[in-house]
Amino acid sequence: MGLQVAREEELQEHVIITENLVKRFGGIVALDRVNIRIPKGKITLLIGPNGSGKTTLVNVISGFLLPEEGRVIFKGKDITRLPPHERVKLGLVRTFQIPKPFLNLTVLENVLVAAEGHPGENPYTAAVLRSKWIPFEEEAVERAFDILSWVGLYQKWEVPASDLSGGQLKLLEIARAIMKGADTIIMDEPAAGVNPTLVHELFDRIVRLSRERGVTFFIIEHRIGLVAKYVDYAYAMNMGRVIAEGPPDYVLNHPDVLESYLGG
């Protein structure tokens, strides 16, 4: 009875829970009984040297790879075998290292394309029966501006995406994910290729989104020194295993973590 209650509390506080995930590539064990819990509405960092299994873990959680053993629980639901687009529908969205915007569309249009189930996207009726989709579109534009002002791209709404900087493109990816209905965003190295000033701006936005809107972030990052101060919780992996977890300062100074980076 007591266990059951604890279990439900755990499910409520953690959006993503993995249980004993195992993933092998031939003889290599990429994930070796990985157990992680991503706290809801918080920013969780995942670090580890190259080849430690970070990206494999993200791929298993987002559905791009299937694990041999173990389970992935998302909002209390077993999603281990769901295809990626089904996970997107549940609110779990993943962004990629290299942003892929619609370059000739404006920032606003990029966000609007992400609107789910738009009746105006039917090409056979869109041009003739405008009144069928105008109310939906008006509401979508409202949501898009709301999101754009949250991620800090409000001023840029009329600019084509091709004119944005690398950091702004990552913000645009976040904006599209939220427009899509994401409440949990997994980001693979958002700071890669972004200059330090913009990294701070990017993470300021991520912090605001998580604090004020309750969006959960799970972030893989190599540039730990730049981003550590923004995150609530951290995991460190090495050789397919979680070797440390806890507050970021604790994990970053953990002897095993230091050794994994230095000892290579």
Binding site: N104, E109, G120
Partner: peptide, 17 residues
């Protein structure tokens, strides 16, 4: 009318990526 509809926007988005 089609260009200025969500359908036109979707066509252009598919073209871009």
């Amino acid at each position: 009318s089609f260009h200025n509809s969500p359908g036109g926007r979707l066509f252009r988005a598919v073209r871009d990526d």
